[in-house]
Design a protein around this nucleic acid. Structure first.
Lengths: 355, 355
DNA sequence: CTGTTAGCGCGTTCAA
DNA sequence: TTGAACGCGCTAACAG
């Protein structure tokens, strides 16, 4: 109940050993006599001793802490990554400090500096659209960095992500196979390199099918609401696509709202394929077809590469790309044009056109 | 590009001032000549100086860091709380370190000790079912603590939560007003005090309506899957309730899966009211009626009380309870018994009984 | 196996 | 307004 926290010095003196011996007990380095060890442990327990990791880190020049930079706490994919990374870190007696950039490059930079001030041993970052300032900062400091999820075509740092282009290419092929010809790909931004890769995969598949003219890419904005507002006109318009492929879960949420607003039925009027899968997609109707990112494997590689960087700081940067499988559920079906008369389509057309 | 990070001493020497002056610049305490100040800032910039917060915290005996203990990173309610708390902390130049207990009392205790080792200035905790060990630890250390969300009837520490009993009472009254008489309340555990309060509110409303005999409380377990498995038999059974009130979003998810498995239609066969609201509930059909916790206000109070504790450590513990409004959407309707012949009900009965 | 000592980088005296 | 000295709590190195 002391005001000042108890120090290792007090523990040592109560145990009747020297400070160095007590330290050795807590860091079980060199052998300590079993008897002394027990007395130190008892003293620590009695005093409620909690090692001061600030002092230890200062002295040791290593904190056994890694920083994790995430754009958004409310995005389920990031949270899955966080969860797996935390498991890995704790299993090796590392701590992780999470900071959030809120998709803001300036804030990202500032938060990374805070991490640097805490002297983290390494950094895993899911960057914002423009993290050039942050990246420059990181190059200056000699700690291992791994770029996760939002990777660039050619990162300076090691990178780990899904194979976005292959996934959207496969997803597009799947929609084409269902009979769709008018496809729209909805994504928040192409300034994110992984988003750009998703668009590339979509466009490549459309091109291969000779449908480049029917391929639309919509970039309504970074938020759910912007997505809703931006997509609604095209859903309500006369040349509505028969299938929408969303490039992120933010886009999915926005598109679903726009579909509600437009009064369309999925998949009768419109098919929907989502990038990013999670629990709620499989519990309310219709179950959303989705591409699932292998978050556990992604986290595993990121951690492996980061810790390898602790041992050998100057190895060549590894770049991992993992396949992201498609899970077909209820929102993807043949397009309305291939069916008989469709009341829903007629309704939409009536609403869109003049009386 | 130096191996060792640059220190304030190097900054001072490059700026041609003493260490103490440089320190004053970064902590803008006592007045420093504008000229000296600028030279220090320039030197810091040129050297890529990052203050060492370990050393600062060690010396200052305050880290301007608070710890936040959360049971689960994947729960949206906790994440909303985290987001708001982080906003508040950053706005006052505090940092927050998040740790997760994974609903495990032992892990919670261990994670809190890690926070203590980091010498956090205060702690906000959403506790596990049995956090007595953690609580004992916290009482021994003299830092402000605020219990959030999962509060007890009478906490030793200040506490902030929704008024759970009032919310479920109002929710139950709403279902009764719709004509329901057979209600089941599904929740993960009553060892959580706030969960117990939710059950109390439900039972009180049923008792006041003279329906205590028709009130069922189901406790299928802590996970979504346990909930599904535990609820399915009662949904498939002959005396299925006409409405289900879920006490947490984990329970909601599990019940929705069980409803799928049982082949029931909501709200035709069964009404559903959920505790905890979030984006996906309003985007896939049917839109789920829910009780929304005021997460921003909860976070605001928690932060206010915590920071008040920094100034006046020995004030009486405040206990805040905030109203959580009900948002009626599509999953709550009159019970099937009040309508004409209901095929869905008949089907369920047939499936349940012998041929 | 144990005790002693010297910093880790910084903020805070206090004297000049 | 500035500079020098001290110590926050701990670990590492070395002597015993």
């Amino acid at each position: 109940m002391s005001q000042r926290k108890t120090t290792i010095r007090e523990v040592a003196s109560r145990a009747g050993v020297s400070l160095g011996t007590a330290s050795n007990v807590f860091n079980d380095k060199t052998s300590v006599a079993a008897e002394s060890r027990q007395r130190v442990l008892d003293a620590a327990e009695a005093l409620g001793y909690r090692p001061n990791s600030l002092a230890a880190g200062l002295r040791r020049q290593r904190t056994r802490t890694i920083g994790l930079v995430v754009p958004d706490v409310l995005n389920i994919v990031f949270n899955e990554l966080v969860e797996h990374l935390e498991n890995l870190a704790l299993s090796q007696a590392y701590e992780v400090i999470i900071v959030t950039s809120r998709e803001d490059p300036e804030r990202e930079h500032e938060r990374v500096r805070a991490l640097l001030s805490r002297r983290v041993d390494g950094l895993i970052i899911i960057p914002t659209r423009d993290w050039s300032a942050t990246e420059r900062e990181m190059r200056h400091h000699r700690i291992p960095v791994v770029v996760l999820d939002r990777v660039a075509a050619k990162d300076h740092f090691p990178s780990v992500a899904s194979d976005n282009a292959a996934a959207t290419r496969a997803g597009t092929d799947y929609l084409l196979g269902l009979g769709h010809r008018d496809l729209a790909f909805v994504i928040n931004s192409t300034r994110l390199w992984n988003s750009a890769a998703r668009v590339d995969g979509f466009l490549a598949a459309m091109r291969d099918a000779g449908l480049q003219d029917r391929a639309r890419v919509l970039l309504p904005g970074m938020t759910e609401e912007e997505t809703r507002a931006g997509v609604l006109p095209v859903l309500a318009g006369p040349d509505r696509p028969t299938a929408i492929f969303t490039g992120s879960n933010v886009a999915t949420l926005g598109v679903l709202r726009a579909v509600q607003d437009a009064g369309l039925a999925i998949p009768q009027d419109l098919s929907l394929l989502a990038f990013d899968d999670f629990a709620w997609l499989t519990v309310l109707r219709p179950f959303v077809s989705a591409i699932r990112q292998p978050t556990e494997a992604l986290a595993g590689h990121a951690w492996r590469i980061l810790t390898a960087g602790f041992e050998a700081p100057d190895r060549a940067a590894e770049h991992i790309r993992l396949p992201a499988p498609l899970i077909a559920r209820e929102t993807t079906a043949a397009p309305p044009a291939m069916k008989a008369f469709s009341p829903a389509r007629r309704r939409a057309t009536e609403e869109a056109g003049p009386p």
